[in-house]
């Protein structure tokens, strides 16, 4: 299956040399906050709007793709040690969200795409990076 080209048997992304800046580039998004020193790479992509669902994921360096433009996305991201949060559809963010991201040290990105399209764009980029051609 094509999908397996970018994920190993443990569900960890392969070719994962993707920083938050790179993610923003792929998604034509804006990085609203990121620590200069933070060079973490995407370990796993999680696309979810339900926080309990995110908490269920057992992986490091999660990139959280969500439509939930609220402080809770950031708070949940901190709990699971996420490496970044992307909010979709250019949703306006509550004023507090950026400051929560800064306080908790969670990189925050907004992008114009729907979550489905972000998934697909990231998937293609990851496949390209891991050197496998689509079949």
């Amino acid at each position: 299956m094509f999908y397996r080209h970018c994920e190993d048997s443990d569900g960890r992304l392969m070719g994962g040399e993707m920083t938050v800046d790179k993610v923003a580039e792929i998604l034509d998004g804006k990085v609203l906050y990121k620590d200069k020193e933070d060079e973490r790479h995407v370990g796993k992509v999680v696309a979810s709007d339900l926080m309990s669902d995110v908490l269920l994921v057992d992986a490091d360096d999660i990139l959280l793709l969500t439509s939930l433009a609220s402080d809770q996305s950031i708070r949940t991201a901190q709990i699971v040690g996420a490496m970044g949060v992307v909010v979709h559809n250019n949703k306006p963010l509550p004023a507090s969200m950026l400051s929560v991201a800064q306080t908790l040290g969670i990189p925050l990105v907004t992008c114009p795409y729907a979550k489905y399209e972000s998934c697909v764009r990231l998937y293609k980029a990851l496949c390209a990076e891991s050197g496998s051609e689509e079949q």
């Binding site: 926080m51 309990s52 669902d53 908490l55 609220s70 809770q72």
Partner: peptide, 17 residues
């Protein structure tokens, strides 16, 4: 509540897990 990203009914099960 669900529109706020909660109420998936997984809270207690998650905690137990």
């Amino acid at each position: 509540i669900r529109s706020l990203g909660f109420g998936a009914g997984m809270g207690l099960a998650n905690t137990k897990r």
